[in-house]
Computed example of a mutant assay.
Amino acid sequence: MHHALQEAQSSNGILQRLTGDLCAAAASATLVSPAVTIIDRAIVEQTSLNQSLLRGLRTHALEALRNPARFVYSAPFRIIWTLYAATYTVANGTDTIGNSMMIPATGMITFASTTLVNVPTAVWKDVRFAQIYGTLTHACEGIQKKPLVPNRSFMRGATAIFLLRDCVTIFGCFTLAPRLADAIPESNFLAAHPNVKPVITQLTVPMLTQVVVTPLHLLGLDLYMRQYTMPLADRLTQSQRYLASTTMVRCIRILPAFGFGGVANLEFRSLFHKTFDVS
């Protein structure tokens, strides 16, 4: 009887933690989605329509401020919100269940499950944004998009590179950042402020991963946009022309998604766990 009561209490505690995880994921996704939506739209339009990135960022940010309701209820915002809500939910829930069951490989399981959810959802997001913004015609500017005839070999190569890109990003955000936080030496200041270490790594590690993944991102885009055989050296030379500027933009883009978003998720998660009387 006593054992059954303990199991019931334990199950109720896990359910409360998972409820807090879901609330934290929804709140974090809502917080980061506006910035990510604006940035991703500007990047797609720059790539497909050769428009100024800064002009796109300014224009879409002003539109969001003038018509916030229309912006929030738009399809692009819903797509971005779904992507990050799903990612944070799986990361939080897997960590909660793994720690509750005292599974030694919880970190790697969290990384694997988050990757399985984030990567296909991110690909779906990229396709939808390309469909919405990448096929626009601007007659007044003389821009006319031509349909791309896909080549399966190049498509598979680009998809594999994007998969590797996203795996590195997810590993850095959800696995490497917490481990590096634990590795930071203690000091009087850090001892007095225990949340500083995870905040530092959650803001810096996602940005540093972009130094690694941006060349992969550019190569994948080149394979997708130029689906014909050419020497590898020429392809690498062409694809990496804008490496420095693209790396900077991707570092800025990753901050709201997995930097500030990751910190917000940690804080919201702790808050909701306490709200549901979970230690």
Rank of each mutant, 00 (worst) to 15 (best):
H2E: 15
A4T: 14
L5N: 13
S11E: 13
N12R: 14
L15C: 03
D21S: 11
L22S: 12
T30E: 05
L31A: 05
V32Y: 11
Q46M: 08
T47P: 06
N50R: 12
N50Q: 10
L57W: 04
R58H: 14
T59W: 03
H60A: 02
A64K: 03
P68K: 06
F71E: 07
P76W: 01
F77D: 06
F77V: 08
I80W: 09
Y84C: 07
Y88A: 01
V90Q: 07
A91Y: 13
G98R: 02
S100Y: 04
M101Y: 13
A105K: 06
T110I: 03
A112S: 10
T114H: 03
T115Y: 02
T115W: 00
P120C: 00
P120S: 00
V127F: 15
I132H: 01
I132A: 12
T135V: 05
T137C: 10
L148Q: 14
R152E: 15
F154Y: 11
R165H: 08
R165Y: 14
G172A: 15
G172P: 11
G172C: 15
L176G: 04
I184Q: 03
N188H: 10
K197F: 02
P198S: 03
I200A: 09
T209E: 08
V212I: 15
Y224G: 02
R226Y: 14
R226P: 00
Q227V: 07
Q227R: 06
Y228C: 10
M230G: 11
L236M: 06
R241C: 10
L243Q: 08
R250Y: 12
C251D: 04
R253G: 03
L255Q: 12
L255Y: 09
L255A: 08
F258L: 01
V263K: 00
V263S: 00
N265L: 00
L266K: 13
F268V: 00
R269G: 12
T275V: 12
T275F: 15
T275K: 15
F276E: 07
F276A: 05
F276G: 04
D277N: 14
